[in-house]
Structures are given as structure tokens and as C-alpha cells.
Amino acid sequence: MSADKTKKNKIPFLYIIFLIVVLSCWSFYVISTNSFFVFAKHWAAILTMIFGSFIAGSSPEGSAAVAYPVFTLLLKIEPAVARNFAFAIQSIGMTSASLLILGLKIKVDWNYIKYVTIGGAFGLIFGTYYIVPLISPPLAKLFFVSLWLSFGLVLWYENRHPHREVFDKIQNFIKSDIARLLFFGLIGGMISSIFGTGINIFTFCLMTIYYRIDEKVAVPSSVIIMTFETILGFFVHGAIIADFQQEAFEMWIACVPFVAFFAPLGSFVISKLPRQTIATFLYIILIIQFFGAIWVLKPSLPHLGLCLITLLAGLGTFAFLARLKRKM
């Protein structure tokens, strides 16, 4: 017992080193450029990200799921600025959370992570160049929050059965599973190209509904997937397209020290909770996200119709996945 406990409680050195490097570089920049004004100027962004980064580390929702609607709808920040900020800030928070997950040896499914990440990279790049210019962000937001709510309802229904069988990895992994994960990763990457998040919750739906993966495994796995996706998105917008705005940069500087702590805190807390508690936490997030979007956007009757159609279609799709007998 003592040997196992010592190993499990071993200090995650990669996380500590990352934290020291990030905070040292951040401190040097803020002090040398006298950028302390960003804290007063972007206090609303800081407050949003304290909550959002904890959500990102403790659920399959990236912090952008909180930041994007708050920034674009409440704070009237341009969607492109909110998206670029989301990629930048998650590159700190999600990396920090992932290193803590790896350091604490929290159980993840590496087949899920590997193939979804590959598909997601192609989806993100394709979406950035060919989908983002065509999308109306408010309309797309209504579509996706409706879809996620339908997933939450189906997952809740499935978890009502006290003896529902769940697994800690994909059982009898075969070639068709590779194709399926690549495809879902591709679509998830396209979603992330719009909002700065999405691949994590989209593929989480597949893992928990179809593959019946334990939420305690699927959540940290989705955090690692979003880490790779967000670093790629930050690189694409910061170094290749070079459309990273000054406002996004200032908000990033203001929020870095907060997300570096609160995202891994979320991962640590969620690792200590039972599966049903994690699932309940997810239901609450999805419900708040949906009704929050409805309250802020105040959609027209046709847009409400789109929400209803999406909700019904999602319920049908996820219920079908839940009932589908996977061939081993």
C-alpha cells in the first residue's frame, strides 16, 4: 500500500517545471514592459477565465465554451478576437491541466487521444480556411448548445440505470474504430476552428454514449485532446495567418497566471469525484450553457425553431448511438 500510495502522490515534476517557466516568462514580460494596466482593463476577462479554466480542467468543455459566449455576447468582443484569445489562453490552461493529469497518472484512453487528435488537426486547418469565413457565430452557437444539450439528456437517461456497464478504454479496438475516431476528430476540429473549442465535447459524446467509456476516463482524455488542438490553433493564428489581435494579446497576458492554476485545479478535483458526480456536473454545465445562450442571444422564432429541430435530431442520433450494438 505504501509503495502504491507514494507513487500515486508523487509530485508531477513536468507540471511544476511548466508552471515555473510560464510564470517566470510572464513575470519578466509584465515587469519589463510595465503591462500591469491589463489587469484593470480586462478584469471581466480575468473573472470569466477563473471560472472557465476550472470548467476546462474538470469537464470535456474547453474554457472557450464559457469565454466565447461571454466575450462575444456580453462584453461585445469581436468573435475573431474571442476565438484567438481562446486558443492562446487554453494553450496555457489546458497544457497545465494535461501535465497534471499525466503527472498524477490519471487514467486516460490513448487510442481515443491519438486518433481523434490526428483527425482534429486536419479538421482545424480545413475549418480555419474554408468554414470560418462562411459561419454566423451566433447562429452556430445556438446550433451547438442545442446539440450538446441533447447529448446531456441522453447521457442522463442512460446513467439512470444503476448497473450501466462502463469501461476504462475502448474494448477490442479494431480498424473501424480508427476510422470512426478519425472522422469524429475531423468534424470536431472544424467545430474548434469556429469557437476555439468543440473537439473535446463532440468526441466525448461518442466515447460515453457509443463506447460507454467511464466519464472519469473520458474527461481527462478530452482535456489532453483539446491541449493538442488549442496549441495548433494558437500556432496557426499566431504564426501562419498572423491575425492575432492586440486586444486578444492583452487579455491573454492578464489571464495567464490565473488559468495556469485553476485549470489543473479542476482536473485534480474531478479525479477525486465519483463517476456519477462528474456526470451530474456535466449535465449542469450543458443546461446552463444552453439557457445562457438563449437568454443572451434572444433568438427569433425561426432561430428557436432551429434549436428545437437540432435538439430533437440530437436526441434521436445519440439515443441511436446508445442503443447501437457495437460489433466487437
Rank of each mutant, 00 (worst) to 15 (best):
S2H: 12
A3C: 11
K5F: 12
F13I: 15
Y15F: 13
I17C: 10
L19A: 14
V21S: 07
L23C: 05
L23I: 09
S24P: 05
C25K: 12
S27L: 13
T33A: 03
T33L: 05
A40T: 14
W43H: 15
A44S: 09
L47Y: 02
I50D: 03
G52L: 10
I55P: 01
G57R: 01
S59E: 04
P60K: 12
P60N: 08
E61D: 12
E61W: 14
G62M: 11
A64K: 10
A64I: 07
Y68I: 09
V70W: 07
F71Y: 03
L73W: 04
A80D: 05
V81C: 07
R83G: 05
G93K: 09
S96T: 01
A97S: 11
S98E: 02
L102S: 04
K105F: 07
I106M: 05
I106E: 09
D109R: 06
W110I: 12
N111S: 05
T117D: 01
G123H: 04
I125C: 10
V132L: 14
A140P: 03
L147R: 01
L147Q: 08
L147G: 03
S150N: 06
E158R: 13
H161N: 15
H161D: 15
E165R: 09
F167S: 08
F167A: 08
A179T: 10
A179L: 13
A179K: 12
L181N: 01
I187A: 13
G188N: 08
S193T: 01
F195K: 01
T197C: 11
G198Y: 07
I199L: 02
I199N: 03
I199H: 02
I199K: 00
I201A: 09
C205W: 01
M207W: 00
Y210A: 02
Y210K: 06
R212P: 02
I213Q: 08
A218M: 02
V219C: 05
S222Y: 05
I231K: 00
I231T: 00
F235M: 09
D243S: 13
A248T: 03
E250S: 10
M251F: 13
W252I: 13
A254K: 00
V256I: 15
P257F: 00
V259C: 05
A260E: 04
F261L: 15
G266I: 01
G266Q: 01
F268H: 06
K272V: 01
K272E: 04
T280G: 06
F281M: 10
F281S: 11
Y283L: 07
I285N: 06
Q289H: 15
L301I: 15
P302I: 02
L304D: 03
L306T: 06
I309L: 14
G316D: 11
T317S: 12
F320Y: 13
L321W: 08
R323Y: 12
L324V: 11
